[in-house]
Design a binder for these strands. Structure first.
Length: 940
RNA sequence: GGGCGGAUAGCUCAGCAGGCAGAGCAUCCCGCUUACACCGGGAAGGUCAGGCGUUCAAAUCGCCUUCCGCCUACCA
């Protein structure tokens, strides 16, 4: 049910802004009114769409999410206000391994495990968890103000998305781009599943290099020494390689060596690819079952493969036995089911005992770890499903490269292109099967009768041999097409979560159905994401989008940085330096957090976030709030009466009014341009500067005399302008600070509705006025000159001054004369004399003022105190020195004939003008300094 | 080993289609001027990492060096 718009209680318009009740109140209102809903039937040609990078259901909001979604929300709110048909499609990702890990931990704490439950019950259990806890992050995104179309929220395991996944799988399989293969893959022994190459994190560690003696079979007194960091895998060696051109060893090629601790002999082979003569001993053991390079070498030399470990990374007794590795029986007994680390210790002990360990050295090298659980991964030979990414006849990668190369997709910042190309050009086939239960089960079935002999069942693990013939189709087949048996079994593996995320831009819009949404919103307009998933996600979406939609999934990819702590450290739970965005929002307000993130989102640079920074923008929110208070307090008949009407004729407006309207246009133009360029930082800086330092610091001060004055009509005109400008800025600021802007908008606008759907300001050059800005700047310089004098000498504002301003140029004189009341009020004057030939007061200090256009002026301030005088002399001498240096620089430029000849005329003019200004200031200042020295009678 | 990014005020960062070095925070001084002390006014603070070049002109463009990040690679 739609409720009335919440009312802001203006009687409780407290001095400091309090975000607490405001945020929740307005967010609920926006949802109630359905402002975030995209129009799925619209014919509006202006459309803007973004799909959210789906957060994990296991996640809770961290600053990376906060940044990512703030930026998306800024774009989306901006476009929505520009009357685009705007869709921001939200959702979550089932995060196969991570989610399964969470629930497995729960089971463990209950003394159970997934095998005890069985697949079906276990999955039910995860769904239950998902209903209870898996929506946390969605709630938190709402808290951040995300204006997603929540009615279209998707989940990668939704029925619709699952259909898309099966459709893609089957079609790629038909095209030969998905296949089963048995080879080494990265295996996490803790998660007990395969991982793709990029799910392995590489880390350099201080390890150990072991040098092991391999005696010749013919002549056990001679031996080869091999170096290895993984002695435990030596039991699976099937050869030793040397470089064919290495004179030390090449005569041994073709001979055999006795593999220590076993009863096997293995050949010595020559391999120029594997062996680097310079490294280690120049002799390398080949273990095709446990090393990717050795696997390739093994293929080159047609060597056998021995897999020593089981699926949990433990020594597998059958593999060690007489059948395969032929390990000494006593050692076999000791090694059975020992994990890698323990096995290594045993092997080293045994080698030492047998006199085969020559030496041990420290050695830095990299190891791979599971990106989910940080366990050391094992290369593990097993049958898996792969996507063939770079098939020369039907490549997925090549079109993805082209799309970026020819600009159909823009990466912002562009510097990511090289990374992107580099990765796609060297891409390997993508292992997509995972040996877990939570996810999209692979749509492949096997006939138990035909494939009976290829099933290998170890405990609860069913491994389907590589020779099995899968029936791949979208829905379960009724019977085996070969033998007619109905005894079928579905492939137990599930797909990599990223496989389903790769389809996200179109699966969420209804694909494979041909929906109106796809027509309207695909390709999406922009993708906002962090660089760390450029390969995981972005590249794969581009490949899948191009392959299945025949069009790019998005036009622009805005790649933002990581959020770090104030010291530049990556935030992590273990370091304890995590800033919780929810705590920040609670303390400083969501708007402050959002504005901070936006203002720090400079392309290509990580964000070092500190609380002081956020506090600063909380203060900004307060400043806005108090500007509103001021305006409302000075609008006796309520602000709303001023907004319905058009602006008064410029001719009737005060200088201040025309000035702020002119400045406003500059900001409007700039914010739009900056957002066009994804310069969130530039746009927020612009807004901050204008609102605080121009609107509040100058304009509101300038209009006070009018508001408090006796000319009611003038006051009314000024109120109209002030409210107009303020309301415009609120709309400009809304995408950045949605809550406070809505709260204030509702207070001042007579229109029923919401700022979320109010028009975004567009540049209106009619209000830009150079002359007005010059006039305003002229008297501002006088005010600043006097304020500086006050500041330097510590003269309080309460002490009124009598000031004389000498100005030769009649136009400038006119400007100042026009604004006499402003100068008097803002500089705190008791008297003000302006003119070309004004009398110079006795005992007055003076300061040069250079007006716009290079006109000279001077202010005289009576300060008959010797202490002031000494200070003044020091200060002026310093300034004079600066001026002399700068002037010399400009003179040098201008005296260079090449400069006049080659510099563009505009620069030449500017330089001349600058020289003129410097000369004038120098002249005035020198004279003033001279007078000061005379006044002080040589004592200073 | 390759690749990318960064080095500008005490701190965090803009500025880099060459043309006067900027902001915010922090510091110091003054100020209860009736929107705001989550404030106002002012000041101080810089070898633009270093070097060489291109140019009338370089923080900005090119090359080299140093130091910090990150990505990537099979050196056993």
């Amino acid at each position: 049910m739609i409720q009335d718009a919440p009312r802001s209680d203006t009687t409780r318009f407290d001095k400091p802004y309090s975000h607490r009740d405001v945020e929740e109140r307005w967010y609920r209102h926006w949802l109630d009114r359905g402002y975030f809903a995209a129009d799925g039937q619209s014919t509006n040609p202006k459309r803007f769409s973004i799909v959210i990078p789906p957060p994990n259901i296991t996640g809770s909001l961290h600053l990376g999410h906060a940044l990512n979604n703030t930026l998306q929300d800024i774009l989306v709110r901006w476009k929505r206000m520009q009357e685009y048909n705007t869709l921001w499609l939200p959702g979550t990702d089932h995060a196969g391994i991570a989610t399964q890990n969470v629930v497995e931990r729960q089971l463990k704490s209950e003394g159970s495990h997934r095998e005890a439950l069985g697949r079906e019950k276990f999955i039910q259990r995860i769904w239950r968890w998902r209903e209870e806890s898996g929506r946390t992050i969605i709630t938190q995104l709402k808290r951040l103000g995300a204006s997603c179309d929540w009615n279209r929220e998707r989940f990668t395991l939704d029925e619709g998305l699952s259909v898309a996944v099966r459709e893609v799988f089957v079609r790629l399989h038909q095209e030969g781009l998905i296949y089963r293969g048995e080879r080494l893959i990265n295996w996490c022994p803790r998660c007990e599943t395969a991982l793709s190459d990029i799910e392995v994190e590489h880390e350099e560690i201080k390890g150990t290099m072991y040098y092991i003696k391999y005696p010749l079979a013919d002549d056990p007194d001679q031996f080869l020494t091999v170096a290895t960091t993984r002695p435990e895998t030596m039991l699976g060696d099937t050869a030793v390689a040397v470089h064919p051109e290495d004179p030390r060893y090449n005569k041994l090629i073709g001979k055999k060596v006795l593999l220590p601790l076993t009863s096997r002999t293995i050949p010595v082979v020559g391999d120029p690819i594997l062996v680097d003569r310079e490294f280690g001993t120049g002799a390398v053991k080949i273990t095709p079952g446990h090393d990717f390079n050795d696997e390739k070498a093994g293929q080159r030399h047609r060597l056998g493969t021995i897999s020593l470990f089981d699926h949990r990374g433990r020594m597998d007794p059958p593999a060690l036995s007489e059948r395969e590795a032929k390990v000494l029986p006593q050692l076999t007994e000791q090694l059975g089911y020992k994990p890698v680390q323990e096995a290594r210790k045993l092997i080293v002990q045994w080698l030492e005992q047998k006199g085969c360990l020559i030496k041990v050295e420290d050695h830095r090298h990299t190891i791979g770890k599971c990106y989910r659980c940080k366990t050391v991964v094992e290369p593990y030979r097993s049958p898996q499903w792969f996507v063939k990414v770079n098939d020369p006849k039907n490549s997925l990668a090549a079109p993805a490269i082209d799309a970026v190369r020819d600009g159909r997709i823009r990466l912002i910042p562009e510097s990511w292109k090289n990374n992107y190309f580099g990765w796609l050009e060297n891409i390997q086939d993508w292992c997509i099967s995972r040996q877990i239960w939570w996810g999209h089960q692979i749509p492949a079935w096997y006939c138990k009768r035909c494939d009976e002999n290829v099933f290998k069942i170890t405990g609860t693990i069913t491994v389907i041999g590589i020779n099995a013939k899968p029936i791949v189709q979208i829905d379960a087949p009724q019977k085996c097409e070969r033998c007619g048996s109905t005894d079928l079994i579905q492939d137990p593996d599930v797909l990599d979560t990223w496989f389903s995320s790769a389809l996200w831009p179109f699966s969420t819009l209804g694909w494979p159905k041909k929906t109106r949404e796809l027509e309207i919103f695909y390709p999406t307009s922009a993708l906002v994401t962090s660089f760390d998933i450029l390969f995981f996600w972005v590249a794969r979406m581009i490949m899948m989008g191009l392959h299945f939609m025949k069009d790019v999934p998005f036009r622009d990819v805005y790649i933002h940085a990581l959020v770090r702590d104030a010291e530049g450290q990556k935030m992590s739970k273990s370091k304890g330096n995590v800033i919780d965005p929810l705590a920040i929002m609670e303390k400083y307000g969501t708007d402050a957090l959002r504005f901070t993130l936006a203002s720090m989102a400079s392309p290509g640079r990580d964000i070092k976030l500190s609380e002081e920074r956020i506090e600063g923008y909380r203060n900004f929110a307060n400043k806005i709030w108090n500007a509103a208070r001021f305006l409302l307090m000075n609008c006796p008949s309520n602000a709303k009466t001023y907004l319905g009407n058009p602006l008064p004729d410029p001719a009737t407006l005060s200088l201040a009014d025309r000035w702020i309207l002119s400045r406003l246009q500059r900001v409007v133009a700039s914010v739009n341009h900056q957002l066009d360029d994804y310069r969130f930082d530039g746009a927020s800086r612009e807004l901050y500067q204008f609102l605080w330092h121009e609107f509040c610091d100058w304009y509101l001060e300038l209009i006070k005399p009018t508001l408090y004055g006796t000319d009611a009509a003038a006051a009314k005109r000024t109120r109209t302008v002030a409210i107009h400008v303020f309301e415009t800025v609120l709309r400009l600021l809304h995408p950045f600070m949605p809550f406070i802007t809505e709260e204030l908008y509702q207070m001042i606008t007579p229109v029923e509705g919401s700022i979320t759907v109010a028009p975004f300001p567009m540049e209106n050059t009619a209000w830009m006025n150079e002359a007005v800005e010059q006039e305003c700047e002229s008297f501002q310089r006088v005010v600043e000159g006097i304020r500086e004098m006050r500041g330097v000498h510590g003269i309080p504002f309460s002490k009124k001054l009598s000031v004389v301003v000498r100005v030769a140029n009649p136009v400038v004189e006119h400007y100042l004369e026009n604004n006499r009341p402003m100068i008097t009020a803002l500089a705190g004057l008791s008297a003000l004399e302006i003119g070309p030939h004004v009398r110079q007061p006795v005992n007055a200090f003076t300061g040069p003022i250079i007006f716009p256009g290079g006109h000279a002026g001077e202010v005289f301030i009576p300060l008959p105190d010797a202490i002031y005088r000494a200070k003044e002399i020091t200060k002026k001498e310093k300034r004079l020195k600066e001026l002399t240096a700068q002037l010399a620089l400009e003179e040098k430029k201008l005296s260079n004939p090449d400069f006049a000849a080659k510099a563009p005329p505009e620069i030449l003019e500017n330089t001349k003008l600058r020289r003129q200004e410097l000369r004038l200031e120098h002249e005035t200042l020198s004279a003033a300094l001279q007078r000061l020295r005379e006044m002080s009678g040589g004592t200073a």
